[in-house]
Amino acid sequence: MQIRGQEILLPTSAVSAFPRPHWLQGRVLGSLAEPVYRSHNLRVAYEDASKICAREQELAGLDVLCDGAQYYEWEAPGFQLEPIFHFIPENLGGFAPYGPPGDGVKYAPFYKATVTGPVEWKRPVFEAVVNAMKGATDKPFKVAFLGPAQQSIICDDQHYGDGVAFAKDLARAMNAELRYLQSMGCEAVQLIDVLAPYTQDMWQIECQEIMFEGIDMLKFWHVCYGSVDGQRDVFEAKTREMIPLFEASPVDVVHLESTSAEFGDLTAYKDFPTDKVLGLGVVDAKNYMVDPVDVIADRIRRRLEVVPPERLLVAPDCGLGYFSRTTAYAKLRNMGEAVEIVRAEL
């Protein structure tokens, strides 16, 4: 995999989130009607937290860092999904942020953003995140966000009456955002999406094509199976069914959970498209025990039986944002050590 023009064997990256320091609490960034930062003190605390998060990833030897989502409220048990659901809608035109409750027991505590008019990009959404990471590291990093297909199905549409049309307008707004981040020098982005295991309709890829038009950044797609305090939404990997989506997607890297027992079948990845990099989790984010280095190294070796080292990205499964900092970073450092062991064997 090429990173900054250099071919990296067994490149490494994390997913998108890490636990925040205990002294950073509450919402950091404002909505469309507020300043970018809710206070100067919060800005300083957030940027300091980003430096810690970046440093831990550097110590683990990661090749592409993630922003760590240090601006999200991870410390509110049971309500961690609230900022993920609302952050983008609250920063785009065409939304009222709080509508009816979510669907089902798990999502009932979270209010849906209501679509009241045409979705429009009004101002930068992730500018503060890019600035914080540029101040925290010299290494390449990716900014992660909920994809338009996923975002479209968790909103209360009172304007479009057509879910696909709504999702495509979301994609156009995010394209404007990505073009802005690209102009800032951002090198990589990652969309987060839990929709693909449920439906393999190709309109999802049409949204990706709209969103990534004119974007030259390294593009990741994290297919999320859900993770709140170790509780997932998806219990069937549906890897084979998703292969046509992966083939048609304009992204460079597709990342999936692959460590916990329900998702350990690696044979399906033999049909993964050869023009893309496959990111597979080798650290269990549903287990609070720290994975030993030799266990992680063996997981990497087994994945190399189905994916060559030039097309395998090594990563954790998603969900480390809900762990303690001690455990999350210990898992990450063990992963980095295991990668070095396997690289030496190649």
Rank of each mutant, 00 (worst) to 15 (best):
Y37A: 00
F235D: 14
P109Q: 10
G321V: 13
A344Y: 08
L65G: 05
L312K: 02
E206F: 01
V164W: 04
S39V: 01
K219P: 03
L62V: 06
L280A: 07
D169R: 05
L280T: 09
Y72A: 11
L29E: 04
E262D: 13
T327C: 11
E47Y: 03
E209S: 05
D252W: 15
Y329M: 11
T12K: 14
E209M: 05
G147I: 11
I215C: 07
G5V: 11
D216I: 06
E310W: 07
Q158A: 15
A330Q: 06
D138T: 15
M184F: 05
K219M: 13
P309D: 08
M133L: 12
A144G: 05
I52K: 00
E310D: 05
L245Q: 10
Y37R: 03
Q158W: 13
V64T: 08
D265C: 11
V277K: 02
S183T: 02
E236V: 14
R123V: 09
K139S: 13
V306N: 13
G68M: 10
H86F: 04
C318P: 01
Q158H: 12
I210L: 15
T327E: 14
D156H: 01
L32K: 01
R333A: 14
S260F: 15
C207A: 12
R302P: 09
F126D: 00
R55D: 15
